[in-house]
Computed example of a mutant assay.
Amino acid sequence: MRSMLGRTTYLADVFQPTKGAPPELDSSVSKVLGFIAWVGTAAGVVGILAVGTMMAVSVKRGEGSEHMGKLAMVLGGCVLVATAGPIIRFLFA
């Protein structure tokens, strides 16, 4: 049986994919991911400023509000945006 399989000829070559993306796709994806990372970073900065502003207004009015939870959510989003690229690079490299 083994010798029979060794003599088999194929009508078409079997496609063997190479590791990594094509260069033109790789550069385009890198540009898009870089843009998304900058937008995420800017959104994080705006979020921190918004939470800080809400905290200042609440203190000025004499109200007690739960802003630390909102700040933690914004900072968690910032950490996610900052680590998304290295995590994906680690998983797919």
Rank of each mutant, 00 (worst) to 15 (best):
L11M: 09
C78T: 02
L75C: 02
W38V: 15
G76Y: 03
F15D: 11
V29K: 09
V51G: 00
M54F: 10
S27V: 11
A56L: 04
F15Q: 14
V46P: 00
S65E: 11
G44H: 02
H67I: 11
G62E: 02
S27L: 12
P17V: 00
I48C: 00
L80F: 04
I87W: 07
V81P: 01
Y10R: 10
L33K: 08
L71A: 08
L11K: 06
L49V: 08
Q16P: 09
R89Q: 10
V57W: 04
V14W: 12
A72W: 10
L91A: 06
K70I: 04
L75V: 10
P22W: 01
D13H: 05
L71Q: 03
V39Q: 08
F92D: 02
A43V: 00
R7M: 05
A93Y: 12
A93E: 09
G64F: 09
R2F: 06
R89N: 03
K70S: 09
I36Y: 08
S28T: 11
V39P: 04
A21I: 15
E63W: 10
C78G: 01
G44F: 00
L91W: 07
V45M: 14
V32F: 10
V29R: 12
I36P: 04
G77T: 00
V59Q: 03
V57F: 08
L75I: 11
M68Q: 10
G85N: 09
D13Y: 08
R61Y: 04
D13P: 01
S65I: 14
G77K: 02
V29L: 10
K19Y: 11
T41V: 15
Y10N: 05
A50Y: 07
S30C: 07
L80S: 11
